[in-house]
């Protein structure tokens, strides 16, 4: 083999780069696989089934935002006799009150960086703000 001095370090760098996730995980503390927290209030019904929400909640939230905020159509949705005002704070977070345990646990685990909280407030922060004013 010619040019061993460059070929071998090159190959070593290549193998280390490709196997980078193995080294990274070996030297970092693994997080536990997140488990979603069910609503603390004990509600069982949502605007859609759990599987559908798991797959499409982001699409639903986007559609609500566009409809309510951009088209000005503020009609509420009624599912199973219960009326929901379409909105993250007005509907979702009424039951799923804990952002950390319900939203963030999975989003952080899979590095999904949502921009909901650029505008919205969690119930705790909203209550704290209300007290101030």
């Amino acid at each position: 083999m010619y040019n061993k001095g460059t070929i071998i370090p090159g190959l070593v760098i290549f193998v280390l780069l490709v196997t980078f996730p193995i080294w990274f995980n070996a030297f970092s503390t693994a997080s536990t696989v997140p488990k979603i927290e069910l609503p603390p209030g004990g509600e069982k019904e949502c605007v859609a089934s759990a599987t559908e929400m798991r797959a499409k909640h982001m699409v639903l939230l986007n559609e609500w935002r566009d409809d309510v905020l951009r088209s000005g159509n503020k009609t509420a949705v009624t599912v199973g006799g219960k009326e929901y005002r379409r909105g993250l704070q007005t509907a979702c977070m009424q039951c799923h009150t804990n952002k950390d345990k319900f939203c963030d646990s999975c989003h952080t685990y899979t590095s999904v960086n949502v921009y909901c909280w650029d505008c919205h407030l969690t119930p705790d922060v909203a209550a704290a703000k209300k007290e101030k004013h």
Binding site: N25, S28, T29, A30, S31, T108, Y109, T110, S111, N113
Partner: peptide, 18 residues
Amino acid sequence: HLRLFLDPVPAWIGWWEF
């Protein structure tokens, strides 16, 4: 795709995705 293989996900992957 490294976000699926690294745990915890380093911040720079979030910046990359952004």
